[in-house]
C-alpha cells in the first residue's frame, strides 16, 4: 500500500473481461437483461453487441480504490456516470488520481477507458485516509 495524498496516482487496474463475464455477473447480481446476454437482441435495440453491465464496470472502479486504500472499509462513497458502453474481450483500464484531502477523507477522481474511449468518466470516490 502506497501513501496517498493529493496528486497521487493510484495503481492503475487493467482487466480484460472474458466472453463469459456478462453471464457470471448476471447470475451473481440477478440482472439478466438480454442486452448483456443475447447478441442478437442487443443488436436489435441498436447496440454493437452484448454489453457489459454498467455496475460491473463500476465494481472495477471500486476495486481499484479498495486495493489501493487497503480494504473495503476504506471506500466511503463512489459516484459514476456511465458513458458509451463497455464490451467483453477488450481491455479496460481504470486510472485514479487523488485530487484533494477533506479532513479524514481523500477525494479521488477516476476513469474507466476501453479502446481509448471513456466508459466511465469523472467518477468520484471518497476514501478514508490513513
Amino acid at each position: 500500500m502506497t501513501l496517498l495524498e493529493p496528486g497521487s496516482e493510484l495503481p492503475p487496474l487493467r482487466v480484460i473481461p472474458d466472453r463469459g463475464v456478462t453471464e457470471r455477473y448476471a447470475s451473481a447480481s440477478g440482472d439478466s437483461n438480454p442486452i448483456h446476454l443475447d447478441e442478437a437482441f442487443a443488436k436489435s435495440v441498436g447496440l454493437p453487441g452484448r454489453i457489459l453491465h454498467g455496475l460491473y464496470t463500476m465494481a472495477l472502479v471500486a476495486r481499484a480504490q479498495t486495493d489501493a486504500a487497503g480494504g473495503p472499509e476504506k471506500l466511503k462513497r463512489l459516484a459514476v456516470t456511465f458513458r458509451g458502453v463497455g464490451l467483453p474481450e477488450a481491455e479496460i483500464t481504470i486510472t485514479s488520481t487523488v485530487t484533494e484531502r477533506q479532513g479524514e477523507r481523500l477525494i479521488v477522481t477516476a476513469t474507466a477507458k476501453q479502446q481509448d474511449k471513456a466508459i466511465i468518466r469523472n467518477a468520484v470516490a471518497e476514501l478514508e485516509a490513513g
Binding site: 437483461n33 472499509e73 462513497r77 459516484a79 459514476v80
Partner: peptide, 17 residues
C-alpha cells in the same frame, strides 16, 4: 419500457461493512 432503459449513473455511500 424496460427494453429501452439505459443505466445513466450510480452513486453509493457506505456505512458499516
Amino acid at each position: 419500457d424496460l427494453t429501452m432503459l439505459v443505466h445513466g449513473g450510480q452513486e453509493f455511500e457506505w456505512g458499516p461493512l
